[in-house]
Nucleic acid binder design. Structure first.
Lengths: 216, 216
DNA sequence: AAGTTTTAGTTGACAGCGTCAACAATATTT
DNA sequence: AAATATTGTTGACGCTGTCAACTAAAACTT
C-alpha cells in the first residue's frame, strides 16, 4: 500500500475535499467548480476526476465530513447528570455550531443534496448526527416509560425548532423584518426555553390537574 | 401605454416568470437557465434580457410572487373568535402550504437569495408574509399586556418550529432516519401541539403555582 | 527480472451556460 | 415626418462539467 517512510506524497484526493471546502467557506457553494479546485491545487482541470466521478461526488464527500465534525461537536458537550440538563447543553452546542459555522450548516441542511441513492455514505453520517439527539432524549423517557415513537416524535420537534431558528437567524431576511436587535439576539435562547417548556409541560399539567378540576 | 383593444400581444416579461416558475417546479431551481426559458417561449436567448438585467433578477421576481401567493394562502384561513384558535388555523395553513408546494416553499426559504440590496421588492413581500404571523399573535398579547418584543420573540419561535418541521419533512434525509412512518405522518401535528403547549404554559404554570408550593 | 496491467496524471474537444456588443425592426414621442 | 426608445435578433467570449485519447509511473503477475 502506502510506504510511509518518506514525506507524505501529496494526497490529491484529500486535498480536493479540503480545497473545495475552503472555496465553499469563502464564497458559498454556488461558486464551487471542479476546475477552480484543480487550479488552486496546481493540477490539470481533469485531475480531480481521477478521484471523484463527478462534481456531485466531491460535494457529497465535503458534506459528509461536515456531518462528522458536527457530530463530534455535539458529542463534545459537557457530561450531565440529568437528562433535562443534557438536552439544554445539546441545544446550546447545536445552535453554537450552527451560528458560528453558517456555511457548513447551510451545506448540511439547506443545500439540495446530490442524488441520495448515489451517496449512501452521506446518509449514514447524517443519520449519526440525528442519533445524537435521539440518544440524548432517550433517558428522559426511560424514566417515564414511553415508547421509541414518543422519543422520536419529540426529537423531531426539538430538531425542527432548533433547525428553524438557526436557519432563520442566518437568512438575510432577518435583517429586514423590523424585529428589534434585542429580540434577535435572545431568540435562540428563547426558542430553547420554549422547547424546554413544551417538553416538560406534562408534569406541570399533571400537577395542575391533580390540584384542581380541568379549566376551560 | 397599452392599447388593449386587440388580443393581448403576448407579454414576454410576464411569460418569462411563468415559464421560469414552471421549469423550477418541474426540475428544481438548479436546472433553471435563461436560455431554457427563452427556448420554451420561442424567442432568442437574449430576449429575456430586455426585461430582466440578469438571471438573478428574474429569479427574484419568481420568488417574490411565491411570497405573494403564500401570504394570500395564509390570509385565506377561516376567521376565528379566539386568538389561540387563529394561531392553530394559521399553523395548519402554513404547513399545508409548505407540504403541498414543496418546490415553492424551498424557493422562498431554502434558496440562497440573490443579493438582497439589489432586490428590495423581494424583501418587502417576504416581510408581508412574516407580518401575517405577527399579526395573528398580536391579540393574544393585547389581553396579556405584553410588549411588541414579547410578541416578536414568540412569533420567531412559532415560525422557527413550523419552518423547521416543514423543511425536515421535505428533506430527503427523513426517509433514512429509522423513524417510523407513523411518527413522520403525525410529526406536523405534534409540532403544532408542542407550540401550543409552549405558548400557553404560562397559564398552566400560574394555575399550578397558585395551587401548591413551587416544586423542585 | 521482465512484461503486463492499473493508476494518476496530462491535453484537447464539445455543448451549455450567462452575458456583452452590435445590429434591425417596430412603436412612441416630438 | 423625423428622432428616439423599445423590443427583438445574431454572434462572440469565457466560464463550466464532462468525454476521449494519450503518457508516464507504479504495482502486480509470472
Amino acid at each position: 500500500m502506502l510506504t510511509n517512510n518518506k514525506a507524505a506524497p501529496f494526497d490529491l484526493k484529500d486535498a480536493c475535499v479540503v480545497a473545495a471546502h475552503a472555496v465553499i467557506a469563502e464564497h458559498g457553494i454556488e461558486k464551487l467548480s471542479l476546475r477552480d479546485v484543480a487550479r488552486k491545487l496546481n493540477v490539470s482541470h481533469q485531475a480531480p476526476y481521477k478521484h471523484y466521478p463527478s462534481r456531485d461526488h466531491l460535494l457529497a464527500e465535503v458534506i459528509r465530513r461536515c456531518f462528522n465534525r458536527f457530530t463530534v461537536a455535539l458529542n463534545a458537550r459537557e457530561t450531565n447528570t440529568t437528562a433535562n440538563d443534557d438536552m439544554r447543553c445539546l441545544g446550546r452546542r447545536y445552535l453554537d455550531y450552527a451560528l458560528s459555522n453558517p456555511l457548513e450548516y447551510r451545506l448540511m441542511f439547506n443545500t439540495p443534496w446530490p442524488d441520495v441513492e448515489a451517496h449512501p455514505d452521506l446518509v449514514v453520517d447524517a443519520r449519526h448526527s440525528f442519533n445524537v439527539l435521539r440518544l440524548a432524549l432517550t433517558p428522559l423517557y426511560v424514566e417515564k416509560n414511553l415508547t421509541q415513537d414518543d422519543i422520536d416524535a419529540d426529537a423531531l420537534f426539538v430538531w425542527a425548532s432548533m433547525h428553524g431558528i438557526a436557519t432563520i437567524l442566518q437568512s438575510q431576511v432577518m435583517d429586514h423584518l423590523d424585529v428589534s436587535q434585542k429580540v434577535i439576539e435572545r431568540s435562540a435562547a428563547h426558542v430553547m426555553q420554549m422547547i424546554d417548556r413544551a417538553l416538560n409541560v406534562r408534569e406541570i399539567v399533571a400537577v395542575a390537574e391533580s390540584a384542581m378540576p380541568p379549566p376551560d
